[in-house]
């Protein structure tokens, strides 16, 4: 195991971690503020990528398409909140699961009806599609570094919004004591609308960033949704700080696990059994991590409720 390989895998892990953070931060606020279970958050990730891919192709400009795509994700978030989510905010978790599951069916099929079931690609402009030499003989794709930078930027922005603004104060208060906040005269429905639409935009943005790497397809939101759930549960529902730390932890553990599990198993097992047990263990690693965290702290690392 040489240093360059390890460095690349750590960067890949941070990459996945920041993508997960972008998805999970909006989701954790929706859970935290409204106690709303939204299975359709992965759909918003997928839709964001499709919006961006279509708008980049339409406008011919990458940056314009990126901005318009984020705006479209925001608009989609507003529309969905207005048509569906608002009516279920006070319903039970079961109704929410049913409705958002229905949204997954509708949008996954709807998108493959309009764009086809195959993968679209988001073509990066030449200036972004290159690799950056980090040390001699080892370079890393620029776009992946941009994802890390964008994730850090959004984390800072969210921190400033939540810690320094009045809106952020209401979100913080709403995530721990929603009834009290409402009793003090705050329109919690409007707060929810804003949080929800902003979360949808972040998810859409994450979908665009990841879609430029891996391609855009109708089911791309599925695996990300489950990983975002793991992140939220590990980090603590409603805590953006928890989501950031858990996202990076999950991203690193998953990526490094997949990269090195077979080698590490090889130290204890024969070559052939390590080759079959390694990948199995690697794909289960984050769930084992989640189970361990929850066994010690049932409401996550940074629970906001206590």
């Amino acid at each position: 195991m040489d240093f360059a390989l390890l460095a690349v895998q750590i960067l890949n892990g941070l990459d996945l971690g920041f993508i997960l953070f972008l998805v999970a931060s909006g989701l954790t606020l929706v859970f935290g503020v409204m106690d709303f279970i939204n299975l359709a958050h992965g759909v918003q990730y997928m839709l964001g990528a499709y919006f961006a891919a279509a708008l980049i192709a339409w406008s011919g400009s990458f940056w314009l398409g990126l901005v318009l795509g984020a705006a479209a994700s925001l608009a989609m978030g507003l529309v969905l909140e207005w048509t569906v989510f608002r009516h279920l905010a006070r319903a039970g978790h079961l109704e929410q699961v049913l409705a958002t599951f229905a949204l997954i069916l509708i949008f996954t099929d709807g998108v493959s009806m309009i764009f086809g079931a195959g993968a679209l690609s988001i073509n990066l402009p030449a200036s972004l599609a290159q690799s950056v030499p980090l040390t001699h003989g080892f370079s890393y794709p620029l776009w992946r570094l941009i994802i890390i930078a964008a994730g850090l930027g959004v984390a800072l922005l969210l921190w400033a919004l939540i810690a320094k603004t009045r809106l952020g104060m209401l979100v913080r208060a709403g995530s721990t004591h929603p009834q009290t906040v409402q009793a003090l005269g705050v329109d919690i429905d409007r707060l929810f609308l804003m949080v929800f639409a902003f979360g949808a935009m972040l998810a859409g943005f994450a979908g665009t960033m990841a879609g430029a790497l891996t391609g855009v397809e109708p089911t791309m939101g599925d695996s990300v949704l489950i990983l975002a759930f793991v992140v939220i549960v590990v980090g603590g529902v409603g805590s953006v700080r928890g989501a950031l730390i858990a996202a990076l932890l999950i991203g690193l553990v998953d990526t490094l696990g997949r990269a090195f599990a077979t080698d590490i198993m090889g130290l204890f097992l024969s070559r052939s059994s390590a080759a079959s047990a390694g990948p199995a263990l690697a794909s289960m690693l984050i769930y084992v991590l989640m189970a361990l965290v929850l066994a010690v702290r049932p409401s996550g690392l940074f629970a906001s409720g206590d």
């Binding site: 569906v84 009516h87 279920l88 319903a91 049913l98 229905a102 069916l105 099929d109 709807g110 493959s112």
Partner: peptide
Amino acid sequence: QYWNLALGLILLAIVL
């Protein structure tokens, strides 16, 4: 072919 879409719409209508 897009029966998931139709099913989703029916389910959503039922819930709402």
